[in-house]
Design a protein around this nucleic acid. Structure first.
Length: 439
RNA sequence: GUGCCCAUAGCUUAAUGGUAAAGCUCCGCUCUGUGGCAGCGGCGAUGAGGGUUCGAUUCCCUUUGGGCACCCCA
């Protein structure tokens, strides 16, 4: 039994995962570059206050899911549970308001939340995110949604559904809360215990409670969309108009609220379509959101970036990787052929190492097993890893300054002079069809 | 944080209240300058701690970890 294991909810990303992870990372990076987002990586640790003040005291993330610690100097720090607050902090700290607006940033980083893990939910998980700061205009909303949609599409995830809603602003939300609160209070008896507790603090959350009774009440509840102030209504209308023009399919979900307090106006989520989940539904709907985000003008203001706005969205890498594995048919990647360098004898080993370096410098993927002495076991390894060619350097070859070039497919081999090896290998590799492996 | 299920080798699985078995993988030998096949061998496990018992991997308790659900979220 291993003495040490990863802490609960945390996991290793192994070489076998590399193909899919790279695919997600590369896609995010390419999309970010195509839309001119600049990379930002903020520290894993921030002052705890950044989140407790930024995300809202009563949010679950702050109340019970933060990893916090006290430093020897007495500072209270927290492992970041999300990426937006640090980015806004950076915007203000580095005076990005003096940069040409808006400032467009992206990241790809681990996040930490102390929750019980289950399917698609971890204590350390990776998120990529896109943020547009310093822009109140609805076009920023459109761009964020589009960038995320393009990312998923490029990855080949087509069975997704974009849900979208507006939460209003400082003007209209308090008014709506009152209306909603009144409605809910009049039916308090029929609500579940949890929702009853939430009535006072965040009545909006009652709307996406999964309790059957609450659902029924939520069904007929007043909708925020009918109570938006004129500006918010125009903003939302404008957004939907853009999406229609760009033929981005969306589902207007008036019940969609988000777990963080800082959102205003636009909020959205991308979930896998039912059929994409397969018959046995590998993931339940509630925690299957692959991508989510919203506008956070209030957070900007709170952190000192007045009179401007910002919007962003982030994606859960593990969930997207899982979705990619589900669509296994789409996942095929070429495997780069490897040339194996085998050696026999002390002198030959030295020669072989030099040869290995020659190959590497020439950009040829090479592998060797210098720790093994028998040619037999070395060839076995070459066979296992699927090397199409093996270069064998023995005593004789070492003296002659040559190597034996063995073609594994048919077992033929010929002697090649040291200085011709790279050229010869290059030619032969050209003729090989890349092997395609399903992962 | 709450509830339900689970825990044997790196992986997949056996078994019994009485010496823990196999397949795959890995390492090696048969074959001391040649891979795949085959044969043989080797490494390697009852998550941890208690209890019941002559004896526990098996039964009980605790704990740790995992899966799932709730809560919530990417």
């Amino acid at each position: 039994m291993p003495k040490f294991q990863t802490p609960p909810g945390m996991h290793d990303i192994l070489p076998k995962d590399e193909a899919l992870w790279n695919r997600v990372y590369d896609t995010v990076r390419e999309v970010a570059q195509a839309y001119d987002f600049g990379r930002i990586e903020t520290p894993v640790l921030e002052f705890e206050e950044l989140f407790s003040k930024g995300l809202g005291q009563t949010t679950d993330i702050v109340e019970k899911e933060m990893y916090t610690l006290r430093t020897k100097g007495g500072d209270r720090l927290a492992l970041r549970p999300e990426g937006t607050a640090p980015v806004v902090r950076a915007y203000v700290q580095h005076g990005m308001k003096t940069w040409p607006q808006p400032v467009k940033l992206w990241y790809f980083s681990p996040m930490f939340r102390h929750e019980r893990q289950q399917a698609g939910r971890f204590r350390q998980f990776w998120q990529f995110g896109f943020e547009i700061l310093g822009d109140k205009d609805v076009s920023a909303d459109v761009e964020i949604i589009r960038v995320l949609a393009v990312t998923l599409e490029t990855l080949g995830l087509h069975h997704t559904a974009l849900q979208i809603n507006s939460l209003g602003c400082n003007q209209c939300r308090p008014y709506f809360k009152k209306v909603l609160g009144g409605y809910l209070r009049s039916r308090k008896e029929q609500l579940c215990a949890n929702s009853r507790k939430r009535l006072g603090t965040s009545p909006l959350r009652v709307l996406d409670c999964k309790d059957e009774r609450c659902q029924r009440i939520a069904m007929n509840a007043p909708e925020i969309i009918d109570h938006l102030c004129e500006e918010c209504r125009q903003h939302f209308k404008g957004l939907l108009g853009f999406l229609d023009e760009l033929t981005v399919p969306y589902v207007f979900n008036t019940k969609l609220v988000r777990g963080l307090d800082y959102y205003n106006r636009t909020v959205f989520e991308v979930v896998p379509e039912e059929e994409a989940l397969g018959e046995d539904r590998a993931l339940p709907k509630a925690q299957s959101a692959m991508v989510a985000g919203g506008r956070y003008d209030l957070l900007m203001k709170q952190f000192g970036a007045k009179d401007t706005g910002a919007i962003g969205g982030s994606g859960g890498v593990e969930r997207i990787v899982a979705a990619l594995s589900r669509e296994a048919g789409a996942i095929a990647h070429p495997q780069v052929p490897i040339v194996f360098v085998a050696q026999l004898g002390e002198k030959a080993k030295h020669q072989a190492m030099l040869l290995f370096e020659d190959l590497r410098k020439a950009g040829i993927l090479a592998r060797a097993s210098f720790g093994r002495d028998s040619i037999k076991s070395q060839l076995r390894v070459a066979d296992k890893i699927g090397a199409p060619f093996v270069l064998i350097v023995g005593q004789k070859e070492a003296l002659e300054g040559t190597a034996l070039l063995r073609t594994m497919g048919d077992g033929t081999q010929e002697t090649v002079a040291r200085e011709d090896i790279v050229k010869e290998i290059r030619e032969r590799l050209k003729k090989i069809k890349p092997r395609v492996n399903k992962s």
